[in-house]
Design a protein around this nucleic acid. Sequence first.
DNA 1: CAGACTGTTGACAGAGTTGTTTATAACCCC
DNA 2: GGGGTTATAAACAACTCTGTCAACAGTCTG
Lengths: 209, 209
Amino acid sequence: MPRVEKTKPRRRLDSAAARELILDATEKRLVVAGPSGIRLQEVAADAGVSHPTVLHHFGSRELLVQAVISRSLQSISGAIVEAIARSQGDETQAEAIVESVATTFEKTGHARVVLWLALEGYAIDGSGGGLKDVVEATHAMRLARSKKSARPTRDDTARTVVLAALALVGGAVIGSTLLQNAGLVGDARSGVQFRKWLARLLIAHFDAS
Amino acid sequence: MPRVEKTKPRRRLDSAAARELILDATEKRLVVAGPSGIRLQEVAADAGVSHPTVLHHFGSRELLVQAVISRSLQSISGAIVEAIARSQGDETQAEAIVESVATTFEKTGHARVVLWLALEGYAIDGSGGGLKDVVEATHAMRLARSKKSARPTRDDTARTVVLAALALVGGAVIGSTLLQNAGLVGDARSGVQFRKWLARLLIAHFDAS
DNA sequence: CAGACTGTTGACAGAGTTGTTTATAACCCC
DNA sequence: GGGGTTATAAACAACTCTGTCAACAGTCTG
């Protein structure tokens, strides 16, 4: 019986498509395990390639990590800016904005990414104005709505935005734990209620100034 | 020339002392690198022992991690409860409480630990009531101070405590990054100002109900 | 079709990590 | 002091991970 030489079929992608496949798989891993939890073999298996292929396209593990972090941060920036833009000028939609950002965080796991990067010491460059744009938009909205006598400072608005960001980013990671720990239920609905409450608190702060 | 047998001096600690030395070294590593970043050899070197000694006392790497996590969580719980107790009954000391907890987080790195545990999927049992005690104390304080007409719910107090916790825990890790990103300076003083502002916001919320 | 270019992969090397084995040294009790 | 107990560590084993190398296989151009 003559030996049948197995011809192993190989798919061949162009560089850009292969890189994207690999980056997608890497980002999945980044969300659940953080930068230090990224393994070349695991990423490669998930992307359907061998691990030397990953190294061929990205040079080294560290360069791959840098690439996926860079892409994720851009994605985060974009999502937030979009959420703000969708309800531009309507201050009463604070609840909607907060919920929208929270939902995006939930779906993409990007809040986890932000915290993981911070914990592991990676620089977080929002690739653009970052929160500054959010602060500007919020402050303009606020000035338009406030009474003449009141004179909210930009710093006050900035701190409010930072507080909202902390609540949303932190909430995405330890929100349910904290709510449960504080005697509230801690399920998904409880999170929604908390965010509604938060939005009203922020608006009340704006109105009280 | 007769061979001089080197007698290597060995210090010998009792089990409890050795465990504590090792746990201290492990906690240092836990704060900066998270549970998955703990390395037996590194911990052993820092504690001044060999890595089999660590295994002798704790059985396995995972049991060591469990032990240090358990100890850290107890310590966190204790620190917060203590900060609350120190200013019991005086609502106007909200600034002091917030700053005290923030300072403790800064010194011990325990806020980092909490987030890291959450990210890596470890259960966070406050070893006791957790935030529930804080909520109870805060709510009692609040009821005593509020007008009769106002009827703040316990849930509202709980959410306020959760918000403060999110701001403090998150702030310890990404606070300066966010402040800087929002157009504020982002140095240590800016953090203090933010927490003062936060304390006033929380009090204002209580007074407005 | 010939040949260059490049994406792809199996096999291997080297470093690092956890855990085991075995011998030694300190301490305690009789 | 003798003997048992236990803390300690050197040496080793097994495994995992990153990175290299050489060979293979699509794709495109002449």
